[in-house]
């Protein structure tokens, strides 16, 4: 079970003066069960890329297969594909429309042909799994806070039981606590349902903490595709393309340059703290409590 992109190109307004190559020769393999981060600045092609995964956008050339079948073949059921590959867009305001939360989340499963009762079962399960409280099921989605709306939007896609869940900047506009809560919840989902998660983000700090594979997009191409640790080793190149490694990477490199034997590959605060404490101990305990 996997999505495969082979030589995928996407061009806006081909043949005119406004021609823009949004994606150039992309080759990617998304196997089951991974937690993937996609990062890149605005205009790097990451939004166009994720819309190829569930056939919302047709590539100008190249092939996209899901479980070995070409998704742009004539008889391919792309609506069915979209239930397997769920995509949650950045602004929940773009999809919430029903009078109450539960009905809104039922929209997806009912489009799959489930009865209202069956759909409600899926909706309840999805809402609870994203940490949305049962007592708020009958509230209007428009009365909710930003973080709650985001949860309902994610549940709206999750209720369709996708095998792959793509989230486009799920933390945009949330405050720090709201941001951490949503990301923790997504990581929890990854464990609980065992589904593939593709997380589009602007925050290196966030991806460093959660994902096990990081794809960096630049000018419509895949610049890096590796574990976050490996990618952040190229922090100087990342800066050249308008991105930056997590602050921790810089701290660790600065410490190492100043003679403290720390592990410069640490990417999270916890890893860094551990490595610094160890390094200081090794240095002979001149530095102490």
């Amino acid at each position: 079970m996997s999505i495969k992109l082979e030589n995928v190109m996407y061009t806006y307004s081909p043949g005119t003066a406004y021609e823009i190559h949004a994606l150039k020769n992309i080759n990617l393999d998304i196997p089951d069960g991974q937690f993937i981060g996609i990062i890149g600045h605005t205009g790097s092609g990451k939004s166009t890329l994720i819309q190829h995964f569930n056939a919302l956008v047709k590539p100008t050339s190249g092939t996209i297969t899901y479980n070995g079948d070409d998704v742009w073949a004539d008889k391919y059921d792309r609506r069915a594909l979209r239930s397997e590959v769920g995509l949650v867009f950045q602004y929940p305001e773009h999809q919430l429309f029903e009078n109450d939360v539960l009905s809104d989340v039922c929209f997806g499963p009912m489009n799959q042909g489930l009865s209202r009762a069956e759909a409600e079962k899926e909706a309840r399960r999805a809402l609870l799994q994203v940490g949305f409280k049962e007592e708020n099921f009958s509230k209007s989605p428009f009365e909710l806070s930003g973080g709650q709306k985001k949860r309902v939007a994610i549940a709206g896609v999750l209720a369709m039981n996708p095998k792959i869940l793509i989230l486009d900047e799920p933390t945009a506009g949330l405050d720090p606590k709201g941001r951490d809560d949503i990301l923790d919840q997504i990581a929890e989902l990854h464990k609980m349902r065992g589904i593939t998660i593709i997380l589009v983000s602007h925050s290196m700090e966030d991806v460093a903490k959660y994902v096990d594979r990081l794809i960096v997009m630049n000018h419509g191409e895949v610049a890096y595709d590796n574990t976050p640790k490996e990618v952040f080793k190229h922090y100087e190149e990342l800066e050249k393309i308008g991105l930056a490694a997590p602050q921790i990477t810089y701290i660790m490199h600065a410490l190492k340059d100043n003679g403290l034997p720390v592990d410069a590959d640490a990417t999270t605060v916890a890893e860094a703290a551990e490595s610094i404490l160890k390094a200081l101990k090794e240095k002979g305990g001149q530095k102490h409590a």
Binding site: D175, P176, K177, G178, D180, E205, P246, Q247, I248, I251, V269, A272, A273, I276
Partner: peptide, 11 residues
């Protein structure tokens, strides 16, 4: 208060 601090401060 639902806020955080820069990574360096946290470290």
């Amino acid at each position: 208060y639902r806020l955080d601090v820069p990574q360096v401060t946290l470290l």
